[in-house]
Amino acid sequence: MLCVESISLRYPRFALREATFSVSPDDYFILYGPTGSGKTVILELIAGLRIPDSGSIRINGRDVTQSDPAHRRIGYVPQDLALIPFLSVRRNIGFGLRSPAFRPDTSGRSLTATVRARVDEMLELLGIVHLADRKPEALSGGEKQRVALGRALAIRPDALLLDEPLSAVDEETGNALMRELKRLQRALRVPTVHICHRFTEMTFLATRVATIREGAIRSVGTPDEVFSPPPVVRAVEAQRPPRPLPQEENSLPPHRLKNDFL
């Protein structure tokens, strides 16, 4: 369980104000908002790359607000993926497993063999066994995404943070990755916080969503709770005769935001 309670951070030109939400192991939690609204700052605060001015962050009951990033047990996939360029895919995925914090239980085997087995498991899970010996420069955008995801999951994190993981891939790859992310989250039951600003991405993935604007969380709930129209609007619309939408409007999201978010 990941609990973020009233975290605030003030910069000269930006302030994050009293962000509060919690993410359970069954939650695929989406932080949804426009560019510059503070989504990435929240992930960086959870990962320990920034320290909040006030508030607290707890992971499985541990207060990690002031902890070093190395001791938080967070799997973090930044927007630019940040793969280590001189290491192969296999070494990138196994990188965290050789650190003192995430060294796996070897059960009498050598560390190398244990790490190799865990990395093989990840390669299999993500369908990238054939890429194991390639360097990041020889991978496509979608393949890099899978490697970064594998690296974050290999350490068996207590929470997974994904910063716009589908922003740099084409639509087809993005759709495949979305299905994969959903499958992985359900299989591994790791609390996941995913940043996005695409409505379709949000509706497909989210079990819960927080909308954020200008450094403040505006609403938290299931996508239906956050994006369905308020009861009074529903009542009015129910009495109105059905009117076919023009062709272009059919592609628009089905609901308006409850809180006038967009």
């Binding site: 990962a47 320990g48 790359l49 070093d68 990033p69 190395a70 001791h71 938080r72 967070i74 799997g75 973090y76 930044p78 630019d80 940040a82 793969l83 280590i84 360029p85 001189f86 990188f95 965290g96 650190s99 003192p100 914090a101 995430f102 690296r151 350490i155």
Partner: peptide, 27 residues
């Protein structure tokens, strides 16, 4: 060099000194 590579390495269990030796120095 993208500092994000070093930051992610820190979330993978390494202190800043080890990150410098294992990640930054080779680059």
């Amino acid at each position: 060099i993208n500092p994000r590579v070093e930051q992610v390495a820190r979330t993978l269990g390494y202190g800043s000194g080890r990150v410098f030796i294992l990640v930054t120095l080779p680059m």
